[in-house]
Design a protein around this nucleic acid. Sequence first.
DNA 1: ACTTAGGCTTAAGGCTTGGTTAAGGAAAAT
DNA 2: ATTTTCCTTAACCAAGCCTTAAGCCTAAGT
Lengths: 231, 231
Amino acid sequence: MESSAHRILLVDDEPDVLEFIGYNLKKSGYQVYTTQNGRDAIEKAKEVNPHLILLDVMMPEMDGIETCEEIRKNEQLHNTIIAFLTARGEDYSQIAGFEAGGDDYITKPIKPRVLSSRIKALLKRYKEKVKDQGEDETIIKKADLTIDKEKYLVQKGDKDLVLPKKEFELLLLLISKPDKVFTREEIFSRVWGEDVVVGDRTIDVHIRKLREKIGGEHIKTVKGVGYKYVE
Amino acid sequence: MESSAHRILLVDDEPDVLEFIGYNLKKSGYQVYTTQNGRDAIEKAKEVNPHLILLDVMMPEMDGIETCEEIRKNEQLHNTIIAFLTARGEDYSQIAGFEAGGDDYITKPIKPRVLSSRIKALLKRYKEKVKDQGEDETIIKKADLTIDKEKYLVQKGDKDLVLPKKEFELLLLLISKPDKVFTREEIFSRVWGEDVVVGDRTIDVHIRKLREKIGGEHIKTVKGVGYKYVE
DNA sequence: ACTTAGGCTTAAGGCTTGGTTAAGGAAAAT
DNA sequence: ATTTTCCTTAACCAAGCCTTAAGCCTAAGT
């Protein structure tokens, strides 16, 4: 029973808080882990792969923001939901929190009832997040194309193609939802990342190379909107 | 591009504030509408159905709280996020604000960077709110028409039509409220954006092309007023 | 019947947007 | 250190969407 419950990692430097919140979470049926600082938190997170991390912002040595950024760097923990705990009135940290990749923000003092419903909502979101990416499948087949995420390999018919990273990821994105039009913005943010800035023509060039390799009929342009993959 | 961006309605009695914040929001890619008092705000809100309303608390005649309560009475605007703008230190108004149905509370003076990340978070919340209720549908069906926002595709009967961007968005707008008459102003503001200026005949031409493609019987002209979609 | 207001139609150009190519720099492989 | 591959940029080109302009049509008012 325990192992099927949701795992929550609780991080705060004050033992009283750990005690109090931890007790309430356990009572609600969660599997609770605790640490008292950021560094241990990262270790523990890698170890137990929690569904949700509750992270105090104000901690000595390594604060919550920093810890969050560190956690976000870990591929394995990509789906983990992170929520910050903070004292009322620290507006500033809220902003930093979202920028660091946090998903929510809970102000202390914490009322158990509030916390519990908030966490329920967060875990619901977790499920959706995971479902959206859905197919963790390493192999995708579409028409005459076979894509192997793990091996970074694409087969067209019976020919093997080796695509460079950017081209591969672009293809993967488009093919993940056939017929859906991806805007340039979407493509940038999913393939290049939020804060990388590259010129407008960069996508075109990659699209062109893809068309060259997998056949132009599959990738269609919707002018003024974006690109899509069709069978 | 315009109509697919998030719409923000900004309400403040000081033109300077409208100018400053408005400029920054536009730069961040939002579609911005402004009014200088509560009564106009309610009108504008009904018209453009914004995702987010930024509402100054201190305004002559009808203050932000009152405006908020009024807006909350409107069923159509039930999903709209409302955030208050207020000078630091007016703590009492914060409580009143939440009681009136506000979702957040932003203190002036406003730093652009702070505002932008705050708004990003708010709009994220909007999406969840809407998704929970299952709105924001990507597929709309009306009579013999099927419109797929995601695929940017219109099906009439069993024929696939690919509409250019402006035509597509125009159709989307009209069909979003069948039988409602959209004035030319409304259409300009929602499809072209607030600050784009184009001649009067432009809409006619697009309407004509739409009629040509989806059948003239669906789109009716109401002389002197505007256009509407009927079954 | 004439006038006028408002919308319809058409075609032509401008202008936005995407395609193409080549070249230079960065990164990785040898 | 050298070579090769990959990514990005820039310049130019092509396509077609968007807008405009001008004349036509219809309905309503004079």
